[in-house]
Amino acid sequence: MLGLLETGSGFWNALIWVIVVLLIGAIVYYIRNKGEQGYKKNTEQDKPFISGNPESSKEGSHVSASHIYWGFTEALRGYYNPLVKMHTGNLNDYSGWIVIIMALVLILVGVSG
């Protein structure tokens, strides 16, 4: 069958997947059409509701890249601090790592027999 990829313990067929996604999408669309019909654009219904507070300006609401995943990096501070410190940008470290890894691999290959 076209598109059938055997993985040894199962198979994958993108075409079946696409068909299933389209089917589910059709069902979702059908259910969505069953919903409330009273929605009108450009009225009071269109506005977001932020606990009754006034909506802030759109330009100010953009979250810039350095604030995304702030919690993630903050929680993993112990992992990230040494890792960032490792990337010194110092050329001596670059060649040092190569020599160290080369020595390690030589030892491993030599010892293993």
């Binding site: 670059y94 890894i101 080369m102 691999v105 030589l106 491993l108 290959v109 030599g110």
Partner: peptide, 17 residues
Amino acid sequence: LGILVPVLAMKAGAVPM
């Protein structure tokens, strides 16, 4: 082999090189 594997892995961009 011990020379070729790390240097070619380095050219391919393997951590920690």
